[in-house]
Simulated assay, not measured.
Amino acid sequence: MTAVTAPEERDNPYALSHLDALESEGVHIFREVAGEFERPVILFSGGKDSIVMLHLALKAFAPAPVPFALLHVDTGHNFPEVIEYRDRVVAQHGLRLHVASVQEFIDSGQLKERPDGTRNPLQTVPLLHAIESQRFDAVFGGGRRDEEKARAKERVFSLRDEFGGWDPRRQRPELWQLYNGRHAPGEHVRVFPLSNWTELDVWQYIAREKIELPAIYYAHERTVFSRSGMWLAPGDWGGPVRDEQVEQRKVRYRTVGDMSCTGAVESDADSIEKVIAEIAASRLTERGATRADDKLSEAAMEDRKREGYF
């Protein structure tokens, strides 16, 4: 697919392309955090946004290794293909990986299994425990403003209080890409290098950089069942139940999270060019179309963010 050239790029041959400008901003953010904080960590789930984020980090510090560890909050209900990809990437680049296990918190009685089987809302406690116990003072996340209206309120540097909570009223101005990482003991900062990217930007960058993704992002035959208008994957998390019928469908995933709340979309997009064309024509955001945890209420994401979620 041929990229459209903006008028200013045609008039000025030295101007950065749209993707180059986004990449430059992301690299700058990683280097800024390296200079301001003592113990940053990158949240890495094996989803496309965290993969692009890691790619930017590798570019930011090459040829030196990435100076940050990775952190994955493992719900125990992850897609096997994504976990396999995560472990392979960690080994390939010699990275350090911390895993915060939701299952361990359930087994110890610190968390209780939900009746609907979804564990996505249970990630906050293990996440905050890992941040506190490992003394992480900056935590990179792959959130983008186009995903959801609560995320659209975030700054690139998002201050969190000593309980991990987010208060929109405490956000700081970020004029001219100047970021204020000052925080009190016990507080930390969430950092979003992809804030200004869109889903289409992410996919066009993946195509340009030839970044490998887990295969579930492309159309494939899969066993699924329908619930609340979404195609979910059966599994130990509790689906299907009652009259829910399992069937084979050609689907792909636009976003990847807990199997119990991440829906697939019917699609024939089995190549990156077809995915880009499909996204360009879509009028639904990826989370709005495929994430059941965001359908609980109009303020579901914002409520979780105030408690410490991303």
Results as ranks from 00 to 15, higher is better:
7 P>Y: 03
11 D>I: 07
15 A>L: 09
19 L>C: 03
20 D>R: 12
24 S>F: 07
27 V>E: 06
30 F>S: 05
32 E>Q: 14
34 A>P: 08
35 G>R: 08
36 E>C: 10
39 R>A: 11
39 R>M: 08
40 P>D: 02
42 I>M: 03
43 L>M: 13
46 G>R: 01
49 D>S: 00
50 S>D: 00
51 I>T: 00
54 L>K: 00
55 H>Y: 15
55 H>G: 01
57 A>E: 02
59 K>E: 14
61 F>C: 00
65 P>A: 14
70 L>R: 00
81 E>A: 15
90 V>A: 00
95 L>Q: 00
95 L>I: 01
98 H>S: 00
99 V>C: 02
99 V>F: 02
101 S>C: 03
101 S>F: 06
106 I>N: 06
107 D>L: 06
108 S>Y: 02
112 K>D: 13
116 D>F: 05
121 P>I: 03
123 Q>E: 11
130 A>R: 04
130 A>S: 11
132 E>C: 04
136 F>H: 13
138 A>C: 13
138 A>R: 03
144 R>Q: 15
158 S>L: 11
160 R>A: 07
160 R>C: 04
166 W>P: 04
166 W>C: 01
167 D>K: 11
168 P>Q: 08
168 P>A: 04
173 P>E: 10
175 L>P: 09
175 L>W: 14
179 Y>P: 15
179 Y>V: 11
182 R>W: 05
183 H>I: 02
186 G>R: 08
191 V>N: 01
202 V>P: 07
209 E>G: 07
209 E>T: 12
211 I>T: 14
211 I>E: 10
213 L>Q: 15
213 L>N: 10
213 L>A: 11
214 P>L: 14
218 Y>R: 05
222 R>E: 15
230 M>W: 00
232 L>H: 07
233 A>C: 12
234 P>A: 02
234 P>Q: 08
235 G>H: 09
241 V>W: 11
247 E>D: 12
248 Q>D: 11
251 V>I: 15
252 R>H: 02
253 Y>E: 09
255 T>L: 11
255 T>Q: 10
263 G>I: 02
270 D>P: 04
277 A>L: 07
279 I>Y: 03
283 R>Q: 14
284 L>C: 08
286 E>G: 15
288 G>L: 01
288 G>F: 02
291 R>M: 15
291 R>T: 09
293 D>T: 13
295 K>P: 03
296 L>Q: 11
297 S>W: 06
298 E>G: 14
300 A>C: 05
304 R>Q: 13
304 R>V: 06
306 R>L: 07
308 G>S: 01
